[in-house]
Amino acid sequence: MQRLRAKLAPYFLILPGGLWLAIFFIIPTVTMLSFSLMTGNEADGYQLTWHFQNYTDALSTYWPQFLRSLEYGAAATILGIALSYPIAYWIAFKGGKRKSTYLFLVLLPFFVSFVLRTISWQFFLSDNGLLLSPLKSMGLVSQDFHILQTTVAVVLGLTYNYLPFIVLPLYVALERVDPRVVEASSDLYAGRIATFTKVIFPLSLPGVFAGVIMNFVPAASDYVNAEILGGPNNTMIGSIIQDQALHVRDYPTATALSTVLMGGLLVGIFLYARALGTEDVLEAAAR
């Protein structure tokens, strides 16, 4: 009896974690995968018929949206890195005692609903909104110039919404740069620029790697920004999935699209980690 209990103890110990994983990860994933291979409709119910055509149909219909999502995600990530690096750098090296205040300010927009924040950008970017009406009245842009319902609006929205996801890992990486290493660089005849390019930037790369993943994945699968800020030509794959699942109620197509998106992103991350050296990315993710 004692022996048995000792043998079973480890299994009891992993039970809470195991249950958590089963309920929130394994069951939903398996459900999603099985739905993607079903046929039928909402009224008659769905049968698992191993209908792999769901995938080929979905891909051949929606590949432009897939491609667009990857492009928008990439654009938002590049823009995001360019914007967050100075912010993170400034907080890490010049923040002084107020570092936590500044980080809190970076996170502050998260206290407002994601959708509301995006809608406020709609107002901001609209044809007679805060940004364009002064420019138009000054004659700097033509009267029929507009940003809303263009690619620019969607990419700007994506960049804005996911900015903190890059700022935070970048900040952590920069904060960890030993100030004595920076001093050593200047002691060894490096000026400010050389110290940045040869020492600080290379040491912050793990943060850049982590930021790219944390930004690109949600940005590429976003379904809000394209809906609110984009036009009919800016539809991203997230919106299609949402539409198929909630409005058309074609669950097999929706889940097939989701699976492709998930698989594609996973393969992408894997290749990315491989290319950069797994250790660096895992190290960055572990921070």
Binding site: V181, E183, A184, V199
Partner: peptide, 8 residues
């Protein structure tokens, strides 16, 4: 430097 401060 005391901690060497080598470039890692």
């Amino acid at each position: 430097f005391q901690s060497y401060a080598l470039f890692p």
